[in-house]
């Protein structure tokens, strides 16, 4: 199983994490996972993922940040 790619956007100025995520989606292999760490719930990213055929799962971490797992649908 390929290793997950990580974008830690917690110290980045929005919308940089969104930009990086969209750039990474294009090269995401089937079965490969993109993991994002963010301080906010990325509603615009969810909309993009739904439109572009990706599935995602979001978890709230104990420090209040969000962990989002993205894969090709």
């Amino acid at each position: 199983m390929p290793e997950a790619r990580l974008i830690d956007g917690r110290g980045m100025e929005p919308p940089e994490p969104l930009e990086l995520a969209v750039a990474a989606l294009g090269s995401l292999a089937p079965g490969e996972e993109l993991v994002m760490l963010l301080n906010c719930e990325p509603l615009p990213l969810y909309a993009i993922l739904e439109r572009s055929g990706y599935r995602y799962r979001s978890e709230r971490r104990s420090d209040g940040s969000n962990e989002i797992h993205i894969q090709k649908a």
């Binding site: 919308p15 930009e19 969209v22 615009p44 572009s52």
Partner: peptide, 21 residues
């Protein structure tokens, strides 16, 4: 720049990512 990016992303999808903001 953000509105540019957002609207271009919608039109181009992941196949044609918009230029860097």
């Amino acid at each position: 720049p953000f509105l540019n990016w957002l609207h271009l992303q919608r039109q181009g999808g992941t196949a044609m990512p918009p230029p860097n903001m």
